[in-house]
Every structure is written in structure tokens, then in C-alpha cells.
Amino acid sequence: MRSIARTEAGRIAPGVGFAALLAALCVAAVSAAAVGAYTVNVLHLTDTARTILTDVRFPRVVLGLLVGSALGVSGAALQGLFRNPLADPGLIGVSSGASLGAVAFVAIAGGSALALTAFGMPLAALAGGLGVTLAVWRIARVDARVETATLLLAGIALNSIAGAIIGIVTARSDDQQLRTLTFWLMGSLSAATWQLVASAVLPIALGIAALMPMARNLNALALGERDAFHLGLDVERCKNRVVAASALAVGGAVCAVGGIAFVGLIVPHIARMLLGPDHRLVLPASAILGAILLVVADAVARVAIAPAELPVGVVTALVGGPFFLWLLFRSRREVVRA
């Protein structure tokens, strides 16, 4: 049965879809702020309960919203740029670069003062993420043109080089440094503070703000770069902007919470399934869906084995893996012509 809200192509009407998404976002954010290992009675707020709400849960939920939307939008934009539904923000090297920056920081300055760790680590991660993306970009640039295929291959090559360097550093790390690294490489929102929110909000907001107006350009790119140029798109400028803005948003996200798998990969798929492939709908929907997914996954991570926590990356991968398999299965049945 097809509901009235669905259009002929099997999509949900944009108005209905966004109303539902925003409602779901509110429910997700409020319930994520309401649940946790600590039982908060809103009618009789103790000092501790107030601290938990304002200094522990709220920054964590806000960080989850920011990071989730950054991963969602960047994933959608990069899938559009590469015309490849398997693209994820990690492809342009930003995630492995950020990990490299963080690992290098731990190896060089690990165990130093609190203030240095709190600010130095995210900064090192952001620098690493943007640095490796820039390197990928320069390698793929020939005569002021960026070859998208080369960009992908350069991303794969630099990812493995960064992985190798991380391997070297971890092989030379002692067990204590290893533990810090593992925490960071697994991805977790548990270090969330208002400070961390403040340091992540700028790159993420700038990145998302720069990606949103690219929706029409990404639509044109669906025809391929040559046809997009024939349609009137300044292809090189568009590619520059999408990669730079994605690197900024994902860099801001990764430097705050480490590597979180699957959000950037699956969220755009859900958005397209609901609303169709038009990036003017997919980009904002991916922002909202990414925020919902991460905030809910983090709430699950916080309460599943309370008072201990699961790494949030484990929850997103646990949800994402089977979902992705289902998507593959579904698309195999639907597509007639290869």
C-alpha cells in the first residue's frame, strides 16, 4: 500500500518528509538528553543532577548533533561529487589524516598537562585531517584540473600511508599510549564538554554552510563532469569547494570525537530513499538524519551497559553494517539494467 504522502516515484513529499525528520530530531535530542546512567528527577533537581544535565549530557547531545550532521552532509556531498554511493568522508583522507595527527600528538606530547591535551589533541587532529586532504588534492591536480579518479586513488594511497605511519607509531608506543590511542581511534563522545563543542562548532558550521549551497551543482554533477560543464557548471570550482568544505566539517567532527564509522556512508542513502536523489533535499535531510542517528546511537552506547559505556562507533557500525547489507540486497532486486 502506498500512502498519500508518497509521490509517484515512491518518495515522500518533501514537506511531509522534513516535518517528520524535524519532529524525529526533536524527539531524539530530547530523549537522548533525558536518558542516561544517572536518574534525573526534573521536579527535584539536585546540584549533581543539574551538573549532569548542563555539563555532561547537554554538551554531549549538542556535540552528537553537530558531528552527526557534519558526517551526514559531507557523506552526501562526497557521494554526489564522486557519483558513487559507496563514497564516504574517509575517502579524501580527512579521517585517516586526523587520526594521524592525533596519534602523532599522543606519541610526542602524550601524558602532558591537561590543558595541552584538551586543546592540543583536537588541533593536531584537525591539522592532520586538513593536511592529508590537501596532499590528496595536490596529487590529483594536473594543469589546474583535478582528476576525480586520481583523487580517489590518491585518497586510497594516502589512507594506507597514513595507516602505515599510525602502525609505526603504535608499534613504538607503550601500553599506556596505546590505550589513549585506542580510545581515540574507536571514536567516542564521552569526552564531550562545552569547550569541546566550542572548538568543533566553527569548522563544522563553516563546512556545512559552504556545502548547502552546492546542492544544485551536485545535481548537475550527476550527469558526469563533462556534461555538468556543458550544463554551465564551473566543475573545478565546485570540486574544490566540496572537498574543502567536507574536509573542514569532517575534520572538525573527527578532531572532537575520533573516527565514527558508517554515519557518513549510510545516512545519505536513507535520505535518498525517503526523498529522492535531489541534493537540495538530500543535503539538509542528511544533516538531520546524521544528527538523529548519532545522538540515538550515543544514547544507546551510554545506557546499554551502564554504568559503563560502549564506544559509539561500535553502535553505529552495528546498526550500519546490517542496514548496508540490506541496502545492497534491495538494490540488487530493484535494478534491472546494470
Binding site: 542516561g36 546512567a37 544517572y38 536518574t39 549533581t48 551538573t51 549532569i52 555532561v56 549530557r57 601524558g111 591537561l114 591535551t117 584538551a118 599506556q176 590505550r179 589513549t180 585506542t182 580510545f183 574507536m186 567516542s188 564521552s190 569526552a191 564531550a192 564538554t193 569547550q195 569541546l196 551510554r302 551502564a306 554504568p307 559503563a308 559505556e309 564506544p311
Partner: peptide, 28 residues
């Protein structure tokens, strides 16, 4: 002790938290 979360600790209503000086994350 190197992958701690604040709320889990606080949910136990502790009056004293003991640990090693290299516990992580520091912000927690």
C-alpha cells in the same frame, strides 16, 4: 580506566573517586 564516561561514574552517586593519574579522558 582509559575509556571513562562522566555520567556512568556519577550515576553511582560517589563521594570519592580514586584512580591512577593517567586515567582517560581527562575532561571526564
Amino acid at each position: 580506566q582509559f575509556t571513562l564516561g562522566a555520567e556512568g561514574i556519577l550515576s553511582l552517586h560517589p563521594s570519592l573517586v580514586l584512580g591512577r593519574d593517567d586515567a582517560q579522558p581527562r575532561t571526564v
